[in-house]
């Protein structure tokens, strides 16, 4: 964010007036975030160390999280699901992103609108669509039964498969955007040069485009992972009781078991997962910057 502050340099006059006025104008935002974000987060972290009955300080909640089996399993399920979503989003998004980055025809606008339109529809509508398609008496089972390919409905909903399909659909537009930006940054002359030197279409993709778009692939996977891990509505509706993730387990702890300390521990575990992934992303990005800066320095 520091780059934002560098670009504009307005004239400096009457500093004394703008000084106190600025702090006054800034204070509502700071206060709102302090009361409804910073303070609640602090209380939640404190609560995670409190005994559910007596509220006296204890580490039991963390101990329970690590040893009761269910919680840690939910944590791993969330991570595996998010990883699968990240892979699917990147794999499905890549051809679309490549087309959007390279096409000069009027189809580009059509594909762009089609690819991003789901974002306007909201998560509930799309999840509802997948429910209709995947449920036991849904669209796919209906077609397969009619054609006589299966004798009884396939279990397509209330499991990992359904949640990954639904979340991939929710996250895909973001993956496409980040891959597209990255592919647009690759000089098309490199591809032309390789083709002129006799490389096939496949080896151009394999040896030129893919390696150069690795940063885009990484950022699309990071976005997809973090969005999937923190999603609530899609796992709740498409996974249900058959496939619980941290987000739905946290909801249960708060509204059914009313166990604040344990809900706090679960929320913190989700937060830690997200921060670890974001940290890995930031580290990757800074190392890449260093490498490319070094490579340029050599010339």
């Amino acid at each position: 964010m520091s780059s934002l502050a560098l670009d504009s340099s307005p004239p400096r006059t009457r500093r004394r007036f703008t000084g106190w006025f600025s702090y006054l104008a800034l204070s509502p935002s700071l206060v709102v975030l302090a009361i409804f974000f910073a303070l609640p987060m602090g209380i939640m972290i404190g609560m995670s160390f409190a005994d559910p009955q007596t509220l006296s300080p204890t580490l039991d909640n963390y101990h329970r999280f690590l040893t009761d089996g269910l919680s840690l399993a939910g944590f791993c399920r969330t991570a595996i699901m998010s990883l699968l979503v990240a892979v699917c989003v990147t794999a499905l998004g890549y051809p679309v992103a490549y087309f959007l980055a390279r096409s000069r025809t009027r189809w580009r606008a059509v594909v762009f609108a089609l690819a991003l339109s789901p974002e306007l529809a909201g998560v509930v509508l799309r999840t509802y669509g997948w429910l209709i398609i995947l449920e036991d008496r849904g669209f796919i089972n209906d077609v397969l039964l009619y054609l006589g390919l299966i004798a009884s409905p396939l279990p397509l909903s209330k499991n990992l498969f359904a949640v990954v399909v639904g979340l991939t659909h929710v996250v895909l537009p973001f993956g496409i955007l980040s891959l597209m930006t990255s592919i647009q940054g690759i000089d098309p002359n490199l591809e032309r040069a390789a083709q002129m030197l006799g490389a096939s279409r496949l080896s151009v993709i394999r040896f030129i485009v893919l390696p150069l778009s690795v940063p885009g692939i990484v950022s699309s996977m990071l976005i997809a992972f973090t969005m999937a891990a923190s999603a609530y509505a899609t796992p709740a509706l498409l996974g249900g009781a058959g496939f619980k993730v941290l987000a739905t387990m946290i909801y249960e702890q708060v509204l059914f078991y009313i166990n604040w300390p344990f809900a706090s521990v679960m929320a913190i575990s989700l937060l830690v997962m997200m921060l670890a992934i974001s940290f890995a992303g930031v580290r990757y990005e800074s190392r890449r910057r260093l490498r490319t800066a070094g490579a340029k320095g050599d010339n």
């Binding site: 964010m1 935002s29 700071l30 975030l33 409804f36 974000f37 303070l39 609640p40 987060m41 209380i43 939640m44 609560m47 973090t226 891990a229 923190s230 609530y232 987000a247 946290i250 909801y251 708060v254 604040w260 809900a263 706090s264 929320a267 913190i268 989700l270 937060l271 997200m274 921060l275 974001s278």
Partner: peptide
């Protein structure tokens, strides 16, 4: 000001209702 962006919504939700 941007720090709430790095906290998942469900975590913010728990924190606010707990508060």
């Amino acid at each position: 000001l941007l720090s709430p962006l790095s906290v998942p919504q469900i975590v913010k939700g728990v924190a606010i209702v707990l508060f």
